[in-house]
């Protein structure tokens, strides 16, 4: 029970980061190794914004929620213009270039922000106890023990992620922006021929992807802390989620995020935590082995 709630929180953050990567990867066909660093930048900038503004945590947090993703998005779009565009989005060169960006962002953060993990205060954080049912000596009873609890902020994260997802889904499927993006994704040459400014779209997409990662980071930073090396795990997990879910499939990405977020929590009920992680990692890999196009991806014809 607790494991699944915690899993949901992990999944919620993961899905936002993964959506960002999925859009970039889907539309531009490039592997952005620096994606995790945009996540990290989001968390670090959230700390900067909240501490500069001071005042009530809610005020700082809301400000960070608005400012930080835009800021990170602009940085990413700038990097796209400056670097990726010039390597023509060649897959190999993009990998090296984004590894270079990863080093630059990490080192710049280390030099300015420092090596410490710093907390951002949650706007609200009430501890909610949950009842627990146990079959004891006196029959079925309900107890209210230490332990089973979650904080209101963690619940908020889950709902916030759902809201963002719905918004994103509407943008992608119901608006002209989404149409342009999908057109570019399917065939950038044809899209170009029809007057879509592919170069601009790429910059926007790259910025949007980074912004989503940053948004996830702002949400997570009151739970975890901002640290200059925090980008590594989100990158890998997001990458895994995108591919497992099936490229370009929004629902697939959500399902995969839930699968990854929940799996080791649930398996760890039966095995020791590390063994659970081993099994979960292996099983998720096997999903891909037997379904190379991902859960909801279309098989190549």
């Amino acid at each position: 029970m607790l494991a699944s709630l915690e899993g949901a929180v992990i999944s919620a953050i993961l899905v936002l980061t993964a959506m960002g990567l999925s859009i970039v990867f889907g539309v531009m066909r490039v592997v952005n190794v620096a994606h995790g660093e945009f996540f990290m930048l989001g968390a670090v900038l959230a700390w900067v914004v909240t501490t500069t503004l001071g005042g009530h945590p809610v005020f700082g947090f809301v400000a960070a929620l608005i400012v930080v993703p835009v800021l990170v998005g602009c940085i990413a779009a700038g990097a796209d213009r400056l670097i990726l565009k010039r390597v023509n989005y060649d897959p190999d060169r993009t990998i090296v270039a984004t590894i270079g960006m990863l080093y630059i962002i990490q080192q710049a953060t280390l030099m300015t922000y420092g090596p410490e993990a710093r907390p951002v205060e949650a706007p609200f954080n009430t501890r909610l106890s949950l009842p627990w049912f146990e079959f004891g000596d006196e029959g079925f009873q309900m107890i209210w023990p230490w332990g089973l609890s979650i904080t209101s902020y963690k619940l908020f994260v889950i709902f916030a992620a759902i809201a963002v997802l719905i918004a994103l889904w509407i943008v992608l499927t119901r608006t002209k922006i989404g149409l342009i993006m999908r057109a570019t994704q399917q065939d950038s040459d044809t899209a170009q021929a029809f007057g879509v400014p592919v170069g601009k779209v790429y910059s926007w997409v790259f910025g949007l992807g980074a912004g989503l990662a940053a948004l996830g980071a702002v949400l997570v930073v009151p739970i975890q802390q901002a640290h200059y090396l925090m980008g590594g795990d989100p990158l890998l997990l997001a990458f895994i989620v995108v591919i497992i879910g099936g490229l370009g499939s929004l629902p697939g990405t959500v399902i995969a995020a839930l699968l990854i977020g929940m799996s080791d929590g649930i398996i760890s009920v039966f095995f020791s935590p590390t063994l659970a992680k081993i099994i979960a990692t292996f099983l998720v890999a096997m999903v891909l082995v037997f379904r190379p196009q991902g859960l909801l991806g279309r098989a190549p014809s």
């Binding site: 494991a3 332990g147 089973l148 979650i150 975890q224 760890s268 935590p273 590390t274 659970a276």
Partner: peptide, 18 residues
């Protein structure tokens, strides 16, 4: 004995084993 796997960033789910 509750061993937390490395690379873990959240911990609450391990505590019910106490």
């Amino acid at each position: 004995k509750i061993a937390i796997p490395p690379t873990e960033t959240t911990f609450t789910r391990y505590f019910p084993n106490i």
